[in-house]
Design a protein around this nucleic acid. Structure first.
Length: 379
RNA sequence: GGACGGGUGGGUGAGUGGCUAAAACCAGCAGACUGUAAAUCUGCCGCUCCUUGCGGGCUACGAAGGUUCGAAUCCUUCCCCGUCCA
């Protein structure tokens, strides 16, 4: 099976309904990727992800390079085999770690020199190296190394990061095409990443420069790192307006449940976010009625399911009172059940959105979701 | 019966004359989390009043007295608890 992407329908808002075919199966778009940074979606077994209907997950170049090491993963038969996940995998490049581990790295035009957060050892991550690692991992979609910066950022800094990201994208593209031309067994897509912080003209410039490199898909990076939602949307709109219709668009690192449909309405096909799993571990549960902070005393004797309207296996079986108890007691099962539910919530939200696009009522659907979340935590 | 050691806020436990409504941790309460250094982090946590302020009043370190300008801290007596000896 080879790669392809098809847009099946575009609705009045600009939202796209399509399908991405990968060597590890089809993925209905738009989709959401649960995050499994260290070859594991935290506190979820792959059996659960399969039960939840996850068609693709995200993993991470930087973290797997440091531990267990990409060469080891290659020797173990690649990331899919190593972690026993037969559906699609997208790997981030380590570009986000340029941002999140900013105190542990030095950046120059050649690449990023990291001091390992695990043992303090030094490592140079270049665009070529990030591509090499991802080819060794054998992920379905590899991201180019980019320079992700904070927002708001001064224009000069945004310009410098943009320039570097484009130069790195060109190097990564060249290296990747050379390697894949030489070894037919390598079946992978490589996506470019648009930067430009919160400057519309820089976003357009970045997109245009990357278009010249002819990637099979394009990501919008460096957003949802602190700026207002409106700004995230505005910047995304600048970019999607320039991207080719026939290629997938990936908005990296988003978002909150009530924001997802907005991004999709801007023509976004792919998203990922740690929120469902991290919030779950921190006792924040997403429901059709808004957020439930399950540790709150008000749930001590609450016999209802986390979300009475949810069909997931956790909601069918357990009460809020029990979940609250598990969190209070610090039981690992608390994180497991909560993560299961939250990932179900996100994947189900995307299912509903895909359906809404098909029926042409995405706008109505998203305003309903927003209204529920605006009301704050459920009773 | 004797000798030591000890009794501190919901718990464990620092403090041994003023900077102490009393460290720290736990528990409790509330909040944050957006390409995961996150099973993490932050705030509140005696009662009360208001003009909500590095504000006022009250109560508090086993009990009752005392010394002192000032006591959880020093003295006296008493009551408990632990260890050891008889």
């Amino acid at each position: 099976m080879s790669f392809s992407f098809r847009v099946l329908k575009t609705d009045a808002t600009g939202a796209r309904r399509g399908q991405l075919l990968t060597p590890h199966g089809p993925v209905e778009t738009p989709f959401f990727m649960p995050v499994g940074t260290q070859a594991s979606v935290k506190s979820l077994r792959n059996e659960s992800l399969e039960e939840l209907g996850a068609e693709i997950i995200l993993s991470n170049t930087y973290h797997l390079y440091l531990r267990p090491g990409h060469e080891l993963v290659r020797r173990m038969g690649g990331l899919h085999k190593f972690m026993s996940w037969q559906r699609a995998i997208l790997t981030d490049s380590g570009g986000y770690q340029v941002f999140s581990l900013s105190e542990l790295r030095k950046i120059n035009d050649d690449g990023v020199r990291f001091r390992s957060h695990l043992d303090g050892s030094e490592h140079l991550l270049t665009p070529e190296k990030a591509a090499e690692i991802q080819l060794a991992l054998g992920s379905d979609i590899a991201m180019v190394l980019d320079e992700c910066i904070e927002t708001p950022a001064p224009r000069e800094k945004a310009e410098a990061a943009l320039k570097r990201t484009t130069a790195w994208a060109a190097r990564a593209r060249k290296y990747f095409l050379e390697q894949t031309a030489r070894q037919e067994a390598l079946r992978q897509w490589q996506f470019g990443i648009v930067q430009g912080a919160t400057f519309a003209d820089l976003r357009r410039e970045s997109a245009q420069q990357l278009l010249a490199l002819d990637f099979p898909g394009y990501a919008v990076g460096g957003l949802a790192v602190g700026e207002p939602h409106e700004t995230t949307c505005a910047m995304t709109a600048e970019v999607t307006a320039l991207l080719p219709r026939e290629k997938p668009r990936y908005l990296m690192g988003v978002g909150r449940p009530e924001q997802i449909a907005d991004y999709i309405a801007l023509g976004i096909d792919m998203m990922d976010c740690v929120l469902p799993t991290r919030a779950a571990r921190h006792a924040c549960l997403y429901t059709s009625e808004g957020r439930v902070l399950i540790k709150n005393a008000r749930y001590i004797e609450d016999q209802r399911a986390i979300d009475p309207h949810c069909s997931c296996s956790v909601c069918r079986r357990y009460t809020r009172a029990y979940l609250r108890h598990l969190f209070a007691a610090g039981e690992l099962t608390a994180a497991i059940l909560a993560s299961h539910h939250n990932v179900h919530f996100y994947l189900d939200l995307l299912r509903q959105i895909r359906e809404a696009i098909e029926f042409g009522n995405l706008e109505k659907f998203s305003s309903e979701v927003r209204a529920r979340y605006a009301a704050g935590p459920a009773d």
